Simulated scan of single mutants.
Amino acid sequence: MITADENGRLCSPTRLLEMLTARFGAFEAIACLSIELDRKGPDERLPVDAATADALLEFADDLRQACHAASTWARLRDPEA
Rank of each mutant, 00 (worst) to 15 (best):
P47N: 03
A66I: 00
C32W: 03
P13H: 05
A22E: 14
S71F: 06
C32R: 14
L56R: 05
L46V: 04
A81M: 06
A60P: 00
L33F: 12
Q65P: 00
R15I: 11
A31K: 01
T14L: 00
D38S: 15
D43W: 10
I35T: 02
R77S: 13
R45N: 15
P47F: 12
L76A: 07
W73V: 02
A53E: 06
A53N: 02
D38M: 04
T14R: 05
S34D: 03
A69F: 12
L37F: 09
G25P: 13
S71K: 03
I2R: 15
S34G: 06
S34Y: 01
R45D: 14
I35A: 04
L17K: 02
R45W: 05
F59N: 02
L10W: 12
R9K: 11
P47K: 03
D61G: 14
L10Y: 13
R9W: 04
K40Q: 15
P42G: 14
T3H: 04
E6L: 04
Q65I: 06
A4L: 01
P79I: 10
L20Y: 03
A51K: 02
R77L: 15
L17R: 05
D38G: 11
D54C: 07
C67H: 08
R39F: 04
E58D: 13
A26F: 14
W73P: 00
S34V: 05
A81F: 03
E6S: 08
